[in-house]
Each structure stands twice: as structure tokens, then as C-alpha cells.
Amino acid sequence: MKKYKDIIGAVAFIGIIVAAVIFATTPKNPSANDNQAASISNVLLQSGTADAWTKGNPDAKVRLVEYSDFQCPACGAYYPIVKQIVAEFGDRISLTYRHFPLRNVHESADLAARAAEAAGNQGKFWEMHDMLFVNQTRWTFIPGVAGSAIEGYAKSLGLDIDTFKKDLNSGDTRDKVERDYQSGVAAGVNHTPTFFINGKEIPNPRSYDEFKNAILAALGDQS
């Protein structure tokens, strides 16, 4: 056995390398319970767009609307906070996500928004939404990789890739993103993310607790 010590060592080392490569390249999957919590329904929340993506209780007293851009780092930073808010308040609130891609500064933001819509056509809007935020640094880091990375996410979500690609570039999808954007412009959105509670813009909370208090205050007003 001693004779083969170096061979065993080398093979073990290579094994570790392979494991590391597999680990490093596995797309991070958002937690499963979050996906289960995502009940997708179309509700009219604001004039103009009846087809916004909403999760939580559509008849909730507190309706939270987020205008966001998948490529914006601040939106990525708010993602876990919003997720926690949705998890904590459950059926007492609803969350609506609207696209506000800052196309001038984020070259892949529009693509990402369309990708979420295309995934939504196959019932996986929130899954793609989570995938894009969780992996934000990966697909935004090197210019030009977003397209292939997003296609990889679509595959790992088990989407029909031909339909996904078709929907990604369809006029309907572009219109949907643009409608969201225009509704944001109309609502006075000029930065991302912008949050509205029951149609009223709130200053971006600086912490989870601040966010929670804003929601609590709205719940209190309504009860």
C-alpha cells in the first residue's frame, strides 16, 4: 500500500478538484419553500396592467408593489429582504413584481426581464425571478455572458427551451416588459427598486426592521 501512496494521493487530489468544479458550477437553486409559497395570480392592482406577477394573498389588505431591475445591484440586495417580508407576513400581504429595466445602464436588464416573462409563460416566473437575483453576480459580472447564463437557468428550471427562446424575443413579451416600465414611469418611479404600499410610494427602507415596520403600519391603518 505504501508503494502506491503517491498515486492514491494524486487521485484523491483530482477527486477533490472534480468535486470543487462541480460545486462551483452548480447554479444555486432558490429554496424550495419559497417556490411553494409563490402562488401566481393575475390581479388588477393599478390602472393599466392587469397582468402583473403577484404572490401572496391577492385580496390582502396590504399590497406591496416592487418596481425592479434584475441587473441592479440594489435590487439584488433587497431580494433577500423582500423574500423574508413575504415569508413573515404570508397571507396578510401580496407582492407584485413589475419590471423597470434601466436599459441605459444595465445592458442585460431588459433581457433578464423578458426571461422572467418567458419563464412565466411556462408557470415559472417566480422561479426565474429567484434564479436571476440569487445568481445576479454571476450573469452580470462579465459582459456578454448573460444570454447563455440565462438560457442555462431556463434549462435547469426544466423549461421547454425552444418555447422559452421564442417567448424571450416575442413581441408580446417585449410589450409586457414595456407596459410594466411605462406604468412605472406613470407612477413616478425614477430609481430601482421602488416600493409601493397600497399604491403609495415608500422611501426605500434601510433595514429589514424598517421594512417590517412600514408593512405593520399599513396593516394597522387598515384594521
Binding site: 458550477t25 447554479p27 455572458v145 447564463a149
Partner: peptide, 13 residues
């Protein structure tokens, strides 16, 4: 790994 996973390799322009 990318081949067997069927995923796409992020690749610059």
C-alpha cells in the same frame, strides 16, 4: 460537466 448537465457555458461575446 457542462456537457452532461446539458447546461450552457457562460462565454464572452
Amino acid at each position: 460537466i457542462a456537457h452532461y448537465r446539458g447546461g450552457i457555458v457562460p462565454c464572452a461575446n
